[in-house]
Nucleic acid binder design. Structure first.
Length: 644
RNA sequence: GCCAGUAUAGCUCAGUUGGCCAGAGCAGCUGAUUUGUAAUCAGCUGGUCGGGGGUUCGAAUCCCUCUACUGGCUCCA
């Protein structure tokens, strides 16, 4: 008999060789039906794998991340099995579970495949799922594994096996399909109730563009049909919120082949929106002790040689611009920091001046590979809400606090409630790849960790993710439909102060090296606006939206009164326009609703006589009649409630 | 950059196996209507079918090529 400790710390006795599935069945039949895998002594196992010694066991279901992983990983096998039946002779690369589903990389050996074939693959998968084929684990010797895949002629698996240690190799078999796999897997394919194949794409074997490109098929699966339906609904919702679609509909931005790939053109309404964001952040930053600076869009090649960017990125940048007479080389600036370093260097600094904070909405240009460009989220020319803080090592902590204040303030103003933070520190096993003194790194890393703890931030620490020049803190938000977006960042930099020989005179009258902190709360205006559009589905917060109000005169007779109302609203800094078309009110309302304008003011005879407006709110309908002043007050209050 | 797909009016899309001057809805313009909480009616304008080349008596349709876009891969100071 062995002792099994369950998560509630209760201990039960079982025969040696009991499986987690049997343990579940002993608790309740319903639980057994939902057990996808189990954590045995903190290692995820098949629920059907025998436990021979005393162990701590946690049953995993669909509600656990590891349970989902088992479901999706097993689904990848199921898909492979189906494809092997439908396309004999194919070879398999890797087929893991991912954040939302799974994929398998397959060499179809010249057989044609496209998303039109998804239907029959899904059908075959469902057929095999209904057979409740078990996932049978078998531990094999390296030689046995090599023999198996040599016979099968699958060089991809052979390559994977060659890197594995003998004695730690396992196979899983479902039906006639056997795969090299660490596991864990579901007890049987019957747990997979709903399957959808989503995408097909090329993917290099082992991510190496010099090697063969395999066909990757993405899919997702669920233990219940209903959950698949909900997921598909979410995808549809995401499609509706796509910033490229809304950007076009709401006339925010556009692209032109003439201007060039990845170079966004901001239309008047988009520019209005972006300006409001910039004005807002500028105000917040001014209050936080930042000073604005302005730097040119190009810089001499020597600037980037000094900064080190030339050596690292020179070849993959836009080609240099040369002057006609002297033949000097200039680069479009890919970063603002070298320019800001030169601003710092324009005169000597005393420790009494620090910290110095230079802010600039600086437009930078980077040559992104053409296949990578995507709407506003990935472009070749974009504006960073950049700032560089020059401070002493002892000031890092308070500067981080200050930046986090700003970031939290703006995220809250924009209704991003769910913020995740990643703290990226050195790889403790590889200290040589970082620049800067041990003492300074130690100080900065401790400061960041303390700040996160003291503020109770929702942060996770990633060792080895720091840049070579310093540790950093990245901010991710979850949008209204649960998707995660990487936005702002705060990075400590020991490298550029060295390269630009930045100094300040300390209290000891000696020269010292300042620390530089790069920070961008939004990241880039382009990307941020894209995320914001998708977050609020085009229904921007009242303080930000290009048109806050549209006035709808009942007929042309009230055009004059409409103009009077607009004029009064403008005095309260409310942005609006008049729909003076000779259309019915219903039509004007419909069009205004589609344009997502927050407030519609209907004015006719009654309103003109009483100096009132009839207010209709976007998405919620008629709010009744009120005086122009009280409406203006309503808007002003609403804006104040958010911006303070 | 690589693989796959797509490209028809400002927008969303039809255009059968190549065959009459390439169509619709919305938007726009003109006129009528003067309108009370999600679409008033009528007429009109608008396209070298992404660019270039080829096959053919004939190409939006077939082939080549370039460009852009979409989904991935790779990359991201």
């Amino acid at each position: 008999m062995i002792n099994i400790t369950l998560p509630d710390n209760s201990v039960k006795q079982y025969e040696a060789g009991v499986t987690s599935l049997q343990i579940a069945a002993g608790i309740s039949e319903g639980l057994a039906r939902n057990v996808l895998a189990a954590k045995v002594n903190d290692e995820v196992w098949d629920a059907t794998r025998p436990i021979v010694n005393d162990a701590k066991v946690q049953l995993l279901t669909w509600n656990d991340e590891e349970g989902k992983s088992a479901m999706w990983h097993s689904s990848a096998h199921l898909m492979a099995e189906a494809i092997e039946i439908l396309y004999p002779g194919v070879k398999f690369g890797i087929g893991p579970d991912i954040e939302n589903g799974f994929y398998y990389d397959i060499d179809f050996m010249g057989q044609e495949i496209s998303d039109k074939d998804f239907g029959r693959i899904e059908q075959k998968m469902q057929e095999l799922a209904r057979e409740k084929q078990s996932y049978t684990r078998r531990e094999v010797s390296k030689q046995e594994a090599i023999d198996f895949f040599t016979k099968k002629g699958d060089e991809y698996k052979l390559e994977l096996i060659s890197e594995l240690e003998d004695g730690r190799i396992s196979f899983y078999q479902t039906g006639h399909f056997t795969d090299l796999c660490r596991g864990p897997h579901l007890p049987d394919t019957g747990f997979i109730k709903a399957i959808k194949l989503l995408k097909i794409a090329g993917a290099y074997w082992r991510g190496d563009e010099k090697r063969k490109q395999l066909t990757r098929i993405y899919g997702i699966s669920f233990p219940k049909k209903k959950e698949l339906d909900e997921y598909l609904l979410l995808l549809e919702e995401a499609k509706k919120r796509d910033h490229r679609v809304l950007g076009k509909e709401l006339e925010l931005f556009t692209f032109s082949q003439q201007v060039g790939q990845g170079l966004p053109l901001w239309l008047p309404k988009g520019a209005e929106l972006r300006e409001k964001l910039e004005q807002y952040l500028k105000r917040v930053q001014r209050n936080a002790g930042y000073e604005s600076v302005i730097t040119p869009h190009i810089g001499n090649v020597n600037l980037y040689k000094t900064s080190g960017h030339y050596q690292k990125y020179g070849e993959e940048s836009f080609r240099p611009i040369t002057t006609p007479v002297e033949g000097e080389e200039f680069f479009l600036k890919p970063m603002n920091c070298p320019h800001h370093c030169e601003i710092y260097n324009h005169k000597p600094h005393s420790y009494k001046e620090l910290p110095i904070r230079y802010a600039e909405f600086g437009t930078v240009y980077r040559y992104e590979q053409s296949g990578e460009l995507h709407g506003l989220t990935r472009v070749r020319g974009f504006t960073q809400d950049d700032a560089h803080i020059f401070c002493t090592p002892d000031q890092i902590k308070s500067e981080f606090n200050g930046v986090i204040d700003i970031i939290q303030q703006i995220f809250s103003a924009l209704d991003f409630k769910d913020v995740l933070i990643q703290i990226s520190l050195r790889d403790p096993n590889n200290p040589s790849k970082y620049i800067g003194s041990e003492e300074n790194w130690e100080k900065a890393e401790r400061a960041i960790i303390e700040v996160a703890e003291e503020r109770g931030l929702n942060a996770k620490t990633a060792y080895g993710e720091a840049a070579f020049y310093g540790p950093k803190m990245d901010f991710m938000v979850k949008d209204a439909i649960g998707r995660k977006w990487q936005l702002g960042t705060i990075q400590v930099d020991y490298n550029l102060p060295e390269r630009f020989d930045l100094t300040y005179i300390g209290a000891d009258n000696e020269k010292h090296r300042p620390v530089m902190i790069h920070r961008a709360p939004f990241g880039s205006m382009e990307r941020f606006v894209a995320v914001l559009i998708e977050h609020c589905a085009g229904n921007f917060p009242i303080w930000l939206t290009p048109d806050q109000v549209i006035i709808l005169p009942i007929s042309e007779k009230y055009q004059e009164y409409a103009e009077k109302v607009l004029h009064l609203l403008k005095k309260h800094e409310i942005r609006g326009l008049i729909d003076g078309r000779s259309e019915k009110t219903g039509r004007k309302i419909r069009d205004a609703e589609l344009k997502k304008i927050p407030y519609m003011l209907i004015v006719g005879e009654k309103e003109e006589n009483d100096l009132t407006v009839s207010v209709r709110k976007h998405g919620s309908g008629d709010l009744g009649t009120m005086s122009i002043d009280s409406f203006a007050q309503l808007i002003t209050d609403e804006v104040k409630a958010i911006l303070g």
